[in-house]
Structure formats: C-alpha cells, structure tokens
Amino acid sequence: MANDGSQTFHWQDDDLDDDNFQIHGRTLLYIVVLFSIILLITFIFFLYARCVVRSRSSSADNAVSTSSLTRNSPPSSQPQGLDAATINSIPITIYHRSPTTTGLSSSETNESSECSICLGVFEEGDKVKVLQSCCHCYHCDCVDKWLITHSSCPMCRASVRVESPV
C-alpha cells in the first residue's frame, strides 16, 4: 500500500545545529522595541488599574463617611464629651471595701470592686467617682479621661449629661 509519490522523511541531527543561530542588528532592534512596548503597556495598565481602585475606594469611603456623619453624629456645635465643669461636678468618694453580702452574687461583687476602664482593682482609700445615672464606680482619672470624649457610662452607656430643666 505504499504510495509511489510519497517521500520518506529522514531526520538528521545535523539539520538542527544551534551553533549557527545568529541575531543580526535589525532583528535585535525589533526584539528590544517589542519587549519595551510590552513593558510600557503593562506599566500603563497597572497604573490605570491602581487609579481605578483608588477612586472607587475613596468614593465609597466618602459616601460611607458622609452618610455616617449625617446619621450618627450630633451637630458640630454640640461637643461629644462633657465639659470640664460637668466632669468636676461629679462627686468624688473614698472607696471602702464592704463585707461580703450574702445577697450579692460573685459577679456583682467583682463588678463593683474594679474599674472597668483600666481594669484595676479598687484599693482601700482610692478616690472614685460613682456616676449618678447608673451607680457604676470608676477611678477619678480614668472616668475623667473617658468623659472628655464621651457623654455616657463606659459600662452601660447610660447618659451622664445633666439636662437643665427648661
């Protein structure tokens, strides 16, 4: 079944000799230019993608911050914390350990024996402030720093603001 017009293919190792491979001037120039164009296009694409991502994230951040400012924050004329006069008007008391009361659970006694801001245990004779709205007790320095930026109890978030009767 051999075809008379078919030629047989003979593989010769001498035909694939790489020692004669040469790149001449123009071919090398074309390769360098092509490689430079590919690098330039890749760099431009990278910068474009980076700008798009930044603009989308900044516009999303602006939208979130604008909407959260309009919904959650009080008017700018009203400070978020308490003024110094109000903070200083909270009475200071001296901490004394009370004997363990049988009616209190262990969580209630632990809660009243440590400052929940600094997590320090109250020592006998410490100066503490008891917030009148919720009766939670804190070290004077701890609660004063808190109330400068917040107007609520650090533990239960009850308002500490004293509303003047109108």
Rank of each mutant, 00 (worst) to 15 (best):
T109N: 00
C115K: 02
E163C: 13
N62M: 09
R161N: 11
S152H: 14
S164P: 05
D18F: 11
R97C: 00
I38H: 10
Q80R: 11
I31N: 11
E123H: 12
T102F: 02
T100H: 00
L82A: 04
E111L: 13
C156Q: 08
L28C: 06
C134T: 05
D141G: 11
A49W: 00
M1N: 08
G25R: 08
I37V: 15
D18S: 11
N20M: 10
S106Q: 12
G125A: 07
Q132I: 09
V143F: 03
Y138K: 03
Q78V: 15
D83H: 09
Y138P: 01
D14R: 03
N110K: 09
R157D: 01
P99H: 02
S105K: 11
S58I: 15
E124G: 02
S89T: 08
A158R: 14
P154N: 06
E108D: 06
D144W: 05
E111V: 07
G81C: 08
S58F: 15
S133R: 05
I44Q: 06
N62Q: 09
D83F: 07
A158Q: 13
I38G: 10
L29F: 13
E111S: 14
S133L: 04
P75S: 06
Y138E: 01
S105L: 11
E163S: 15
T109A: 00
Q78M: 10
D17H: 09
D15I: 12
V52N: 12
Q12E: 14
S98D: 03
A84P: 00
E108V: 01
I117Y: 03
I92D: 04
R26Q: 10
T109C: 00
F122M: 02
C153V: 10
T8I: 11
F35P: 02
S67D: 04
S6R: 10
C153D: 01
G125Q: 06
G5L: 14
L104R: 03
S105I: 05
M155G: 03
T66C: 04
V121T: 14
K145V: 14
P165H: 05
Q80T: 15
E108Y: 01
T109D: 01
T27S: 11
R71H: 07
Y138F: 15
Q7H: 07
W11C: 09
C115L: 07
S73M: 12
E114G: 05
E111T: 13
I23M: 12
S106L: 13
L29N: 12
F122S: 00
S112M: 05
S67F: 07
H96E: 00
A49P: 00
H24L: 12
D13G: 11
L104T: 01
P154E: 03
P99G: 01
S59W: 07
V121N: 06
S152R: 08
V53Q: 15
D15C: 06
A158M: 13
N62F: 10
F35Y: 14
V121L: 08
C137E: 01
A85T: 15
V64R: 14
R50K: 11
P79M: 05
T102K: 03
C153P: 01
Q7W: 03
